[in-house]
């Protein structure tokens, strides 16, 4: 069979999931200039919380369709708890320091959260597959795809459009862009930069957790899942350009399609395919495809 349609569909489905995770990472970097390694742990916490909530809900014999609301609720809870705790409790004491120091701080948070997750949820993998098959399947030629995958494409579109609207069309977005452009000047004109940082980090944490929560029904939630995702999310935002929402979308699409193409046509290259693309992009455009041009400050 002609494998091109399958490559494009598989790429799109994978990209939607990765975009939800990567867009939170790029948002935090864009506003706060923090490359948040702990993003992977927030993804894992979202997945564990969702698996736990849904598992208990289904075990109680409640209507399975409500489990989708629980997936989103899990992400909101994790974001609202972990985001402010990390930002207020730790990161705000580090602002103004070198970006490398902040990477190391978030790496420490990542390690702490990895152990915290094990302590809280144990080391046994969690399985809550029911929501994955609940929406039925869609037949496309010889291939069958669960509708859940296409629902995630919808969620990714909504997330991307809402973020783009808020950043570009609202007053809050103007404030955000002012902080991105010049933190000190923004503070001087009366913008509460600390609050902007808190809200940005919480929204970013919520998006990481949402990625984890929505992936929970499709996989086995187990220790270590965060590390795998953070590497891929970094590759996406680097390809797209750190801090760019459009870049995260394009980066996710490129990574998804390249990986799917490798799987279908050259499986032995799948492991390296993303990094080959990343290397090529960085050679051609060292700051990523959608890097925002910066005026040189004198």
């Amino acid at each position: 069979m002609n494998q091109l349609p399958a490559v494009l569909i598989d790429g799109l489905l994978a990209a939607s999931m990765m975009f939800i995770i990567a867009v939170g990472l790029t948002l935090i970097y864009g506003v706060m200039k923090i490359l948040n390694v702990a993003h992977g742990s927030l993804y894992a916490l979202g997945a564990y919380a969702a698996a736990t909530f849904v598992g208990k809900w289904l075990a109680g014999g409640h209507p399975p369709m409500a489990s989708y609301a629980l997936l989103v609720a899990a992400a909101i809870v994790v974001g609202l708890v972990a985001g402010p705790v990390i930002e207020r409790g730790l990161l705000r004491h580090m602002y103004g320091r070198d970006e490398v120091v902040l990477v190391l701080v978030t790496y420490a948070v990542f390690l702490i959260l990895e152990d915290f997750t094990k302590l809280l949820f144990g080391v046994d993998p969690l399985l809550v597959a029911e929501p994955y098959g609940l929406l039925g399947n869609i037949e496309l030629g010889e291939l069958t795809y669960p509708t859940y995958g296409f629902a995630l494409v919808g969620v990714a579109l909504v997330v991307g459009l809402v973020l783009a609207y808020v950043v570009n069309k609202t007053r809050a977005g103007k404030i955000l862009r002012a902080v991105i452009h010049d933190r000190e000047m923004s503070a001087a004109v009366g913008i509460n930069v600390g609050r902007v940082y808190l809200i940005t980090f919480t929204v970013g944490a919520m998006l990481a957790a949402l990625g984890g929560a929505l992936s929970a029904p499709t996989t086995s939630v187990q220790p270590g899942i965060g590390a795998e995702k953070i590497v891929l999310a970094f590759a996406i935002v680097v390809i797209g350009g750190l801090g760019s929402l459009g870049g995260a979308a394009l980066g996710a699409l490129i990574v998804g399609i390249v990986q799917a193409a490798a799987v279908h046509w050259k499986p032995e290259l799948e492991l390296f395919s993303v990094y080959i693309v990343m290397a090529i992009v960085l050679i051609v455009r060292p700051k990523g495809l959608f890097a925002i041009p910066e005026a040189r400050k004198i």
């Binding site: 790429g11 999931m17 996989t219 795998e228 799987v263 799948e270």
Partner: peptide, 15 residues
Amino acid sequence: MPKFGAGQYGAEISA
């Protein structure tokens, strides 16, 4: 030959 710990196998299953 997916990576160890990949967790998502959409394209592999299609193949």
